[in-house]
Every structure is written in C-alpha cells, then in structure tokens.
Design a protein around this nucleic acid. Structure first.
Lengths: 340, 340
DNA sequence: TATAATGCCTGAAACGTTTAAGTAGATCAA
DNA sequence: TTGATCTACTTAAACGTTTCAGGCATTATA
C-alpha cells in the first residue's frame, strides 16, 4: 500500500489539509511544521497519487501527441527524431507525454481527439502534419484546449507554432540543381491537404519560375510520404516519354524510396538522376549515396514545441508565439556533389 | 464542461449508480434501461473521466516504458522501431503508453521507477536493455507490479519475456565471416552489465572456438552502443600493431559508427575490413555499404511484449511466458557479399 | 478593555467514478 | 396470508487529493 498524505498526517498529528498545504508551500503553514512534513514525507517515501490530484485539480499534467494517419509510420526517421525531441523535453518539465496513433479515417481521428479532451487525459496537444484546413485546430480552439503546432494552418487562427521557411528554401534547392546542370526537374509531393505539401510545391514552382524553367504538370506526382509510395511514383516518372533528370521530394523518406527505385532501374543516383529530400533526418547522411536535403533541426523543433506548450500550460507568457526556422541546404552526392 | 455520469442520470431520472452499472454491463440493470443509458451516453457525448475511474479502481490503464540511460538515444533506429511496435500494439488494447527517459545514474533510474509505481502512474512496465543483474526486475517483482522484458536477467526470477538466441546466432556469424576469408575478427560490445553484451560476446567466443580460431583479448572492445562511441573503438582497433580484418558489433548502431571510422581511415568496408551489426534495423539496408547483420524483428518483438503484458494485466492467462526469436542472417556488402 | 488583525491550523466538501449494502415492489411457494 | 426470492433499482461510502470557509490563540490597535 502506497503512503498517502493521511499517513503523514496521522504520524505528525496534523490534519491532512495542513500536510497538503505544507507540501504545496502555502504561506499559512509555519516554517517549522513545513520542515517536519517535508522530512516525514521523504522518509516515508510519499509520492502523491496522480489520479486523486488530477481529479481534484481537473488537470492531468500530461501533454498529448497523436500521430496522424497521414504520417507514414511511427518508425519513420522524421517521426522518431520528432518523438525523441518531445520525449527529451517533456522529461525536463513536470509533464508526462502521452503518445498514440490515430486510426486511419477522419472520423476515427476526431474520435480520439474528442476522447482525450473529454476524459481530460491530457492538458494540451502537440500537432504536426498540420493541414491547410485543419479541423483539429478549430476544435481545440473552440474547446479552449492549449496546443502548439508544427506549421501554420490556413484557418485564420493564430496559435503558438514553429514554422519552416518551406517556399524559399525549396526555390533555393531548385537553383542548386539547375546550377549543377540538371534540366528537367520533377517533384514528388505528399497528401495535398498538408501545409508542407502545399508550400514545398509552391517553392518548387517558384524556383522554376525564378530560373525561367518551364513548369510541366506531368513532372509533379502526389505520393504519401512513404518510401513505398515514392518508389511507385518514381517509377511512374521514369516511364514518361521525356523523363526527368532530377527528382525533388517533399521529405527524406520519399527520397529514400526514389533512390531505391532508381537503383532498381539501373540509374546512377546523383549522375543520371539527381534526388533531393527535405528534413535532413540523420539517416540521410548514411544513405547510398548520401542525400542532398534541406535540413530542419527536427529534434530542436520538437523541443521548442514542448517548451512553448509547457509555458502556455504553466501560464508563463511565451517569449515568442511564432518561431521560423530556415532550413540549411545540405549538398551531398545524390545531387551530384562529390563526397566531401 | 465535459459530460459526467451524473448528467446522464439526471436526464434519465436514474441514480448515478444505475448509469454506471448500465454502462459497465452489470446484469442487475434491465435490458431496456441499459439501452436508454447507452444511447443517452452516446448522444450526450459522454466520456468517462479517467482520473476518477483510476482513483476509484486503483489502476491507471496505462503501461510504462522508461528508456534506460544505457540506451543511446530516444532516436536510435532500434529504439524507434521498438517504440513503434509498443505504440502500435498498445493502441489495440485499452491501455495508454507512457514513455519517459531515465536520467543517467542508477539512483535517478530507481527514483523514476519508484515514483511511477507509487503514484500508480502505470499498471505495468515494459523493460528492455535488461542487465544480467537487474534491480528493476527484483524491485517490480517485490512490489508485485506486472512487467515483461526483452531478454532474461540472471536474477533467477521467472518473468514473461522475449528472448533472442544471441549466442548461437553470433557464432554463426563468425562462421560466415571466416568462410568469406576474414581471419582476424574483432568484437565491439556494449556495457557489460547488459544481457545482450554478455551473450553476444559469448557467441563471438564460441564462434571462434568452433573454427579453432584464437581468441585475442586485444580484439575485444567495450563501447556504449552509440555510433560515436563505436567510432572511437574502431579507431583503437585499427591502431593495433596487428589490426583486425573484420569487426563484429553488438548492434547496428555500433556498426554504423565503425563504418564511419573505416571510411575516414580510407579503408574499404566489406573488402579491407568486414563489418557486421546486430538487430537488422531497417536503416541497415540503406547504409553505405549495406550492413550484414542479424535480423531481429524488433517491431514484432515489441508488439509481442505489449501483448504479453496486456494479457497479464487483463488476467488472461498467457499462451507463452517465454518466446525465443532466432535472428536471421542478412548477408550484405559490409561483409564482402556482392550486391544482390 | 474591547476589537481587529494576524498566524497557524482544522473540518468538511468536492472532484467523478465504482461498488457494497440496502430496499421497494413483484412473484411465488406453502 | 406470510415469508422467501427475485428483479431492478437507490443510497451512501470510498478512492486521495485540494481548497474554501472557518476557528482558536496570540498579538496589535484604538
């Protein structure tokens, strides 16, 4: 039987209220009593019962992250780096991290968010894979549940968030490919509700325009951010009468699938066809060949998000409600650069 | 304000007890009443308050996984595949998954397990990175907290677990290297309290003995399962007066560090020096060159563990208290095999 | 000296469930 | 008719906290 506050009270001949207040540091308990309580608590190995505290305080001291079904898999390098940041940072705050997966289907996703909100399982949410129109953002705003997001939806709601400068950096990457001599540049995007798909595609188009290169709709494929999906998309591109000599991808995972497909087609990646990713996951440095990509510090981004949410939940004012990261261009062999 | 059982009771002119029992399916509620309750609950969007339920039932419906500080990082491929399995499988059960990280130091680790147990944060634990003498296993057994583990400690306690046939498979891998013509085989292990370090080293030694190859203690390095640590260990090995022509690693992460070091030393991996890993994480297929490794279905293993724990917590009897996986040998270019 | 203020503590209610124990009313056996 | 047995509920206590509203000394103020 775990020790309760009542045991301490009995031992010290105090009321449970006094013990509770002493532990919480209320000023109407004498210094001396507080000391006695604190040492007794430690000696007896007291740990507050979470459920009781939650029930009374009406909060859970937990933050939630629900993997969207748009996210390929729990195990994708992006997700794992992201989770890693979330986990490491939450550990530094008095919060728990609750992770789950939304079953596929919009209804199922709504159900799980609703349940978590209603059952007060968590006090706030971390959102990623934000969509241009995102019901989650409207829902949580309505319910006044704190949340932070990676990327900004177009719902016209201002929430604490981290953004990546997708458009400009993609345009820059187009320029890099063009300078390396690649002429016919394709793009494989993700599900098109996603903000990143939208913005990265926009950057691709802007990059082409900047260099006065023609935009060919045949060269734009929609995929699902998985390497399996990308494998198929790449094959479709290579079957075109006039196939591309460069394939830009919405994320690294997609790029890995493309590289795989090109290998299978006997094409030399970085020479016959350039490939680029987006995210700069650590494994991108170890692919064969190493992947040219736009590096976002995923781990840091995740930590920042937790930080923002924690500040919000603790009613500290946020230093910045909006943080913009500009990805760094990592030129590697997949776009023809010689090994460093 | 979320809907409570009390709101339903008021609406239907029933006692809260009746509503509670109706929802829980007790037989002393008439079919008809139960139906009314259930539909009302659905219509009103009732979701039970977890904290209240936990407090009353004295359980949390959550299972815990605390990353050991022996684990390199949240973001290692092994961990992420493992987490992925845990997450996917818990989602299929009426449990939450609570993940945290033990701060370094044995005391800090004890503190977090104690806190989780005492505060009843979770009903059971998943343990990995099991050590030959593992206080966690003794502690949880003492406290009668259910848990399952990956690998079996030598504490003489019988608990539900998944084991990998480390020794035999490592011995087999030695044979494969020897057959490929590698003569001087080194081994980089992990922290030596770990069961896997122990058993994989034993397998290495047995493999040498099987082929009547000499065991040279200089060729055995202890590292920390990270690629950074392995990088250093590999350099130490290569500086020996009589350096190895093959390096076997306790896990894939270690192998990645070794490959990196060999690249930097200008050695050709798979030709000058063979490298092998252990785990068969998905990224091992995409390293440069692809890694020869012993494949454990990490994802499946994690799911099995959750399954076992869930069965235990739900008082279903376990079909098997001990599951042994035999890793498959993936021969790839890092040990000299030509690309398939 | 009466009254107010202060310091330090207690009692009791509340959070939303679950569950043991109790109770009307109907049914049934003798 | 009496009492036993069911059925279908209700009452109330409990889980371990937090917190509101006092309350009793002691000290300060008028």
């Amino acid at each position: 039987m775990p020790i309760t506050i009542r045991d301490i009270a009995r031992n010290l001949n105090l009321s449970i209220a006094a013990v509770s207040r002493a532990l919480d540091g209320y000023p109407d308990i004498s210094k001396e009593t507080r000391q006695r309580v604190i040492t007794a608590a430690r000696e007896m190995g007291y740990v507050p019962n979470r459920a009781a505290r939650q029930l009374r305080r009406q909060k859970s001291d937990a933050i939630g992250y629900i993997l969207s079904s748009d996210t390929p898999r729990f195990a994708s390098p992006f997700t794992s780096e992201f989770l890693s940041g979330l986990g490491d940072e939450t550990a530094l705050h008095p919060f728990d991290l609750l992770v789950s997966i939304a079953p596929p289907g919009a209804d199922a996703e709504q159900a799980i968010y609703r349940t978590w909100v209603q059952s007060r399982k968590v006090d706030g949410f971390i959102l990623d894979q934000v969509r241009t129109q995102d019901w989650r953002i409207r829902f949580l705003t309505e319910q006044s549940i704190p949340f932070v997001g990676l990327e900004h939806s177009k719902d016209g709601i201002d929430y604490p968030r981290v953004e990546v400068d997708n458009t400009a950096s993609m345009a820059g990457l187009v320029a890099h490919l063009a300078e390396s001599g690649f002429q016919r540049i394709a793009f494989i995007g993700g599900p098109d509700q996603l903000v990143i798909s939208d913005e990265r595609l926009a950057g691709y188009r802007q990059g082409l325009a900047d260099r006065h290169m023609a935009y060919d709709p045949d060269l734009v494929q929609v995929s699902d951010q998985t390497s399996a999906g990308a494998y198929e998309a790449a094959k479709r591109l290579c079957c075109l009468p006039n196939p591309p000599d460069a394939i830009m991808c919405v994320n690294d995972e997609t790029a890995f699938g493309v590289i795989h497909a090109l290998h299978d087609l006997g094409l030399l990646v970085g020479k016959d066809v350039a490939v680029t990713g987006f995210d700069g996951v650590t494994t991108s440095a170890h692919s064969d060949p190493p992947l040219t990509t736009l590096d976002i510090p995923v781990y840091e981004v995740a930590r920042k998000l937790v930080n923002m949410l924690a500040a919000d939940l603790e009613h500290r004012s946020l230093p910045e409600r909006r943080i913009v990261f500009t990805p760094g261009l990592l030129k590697r062999r997949s776009s023809g650069d010689s090994p460093s």
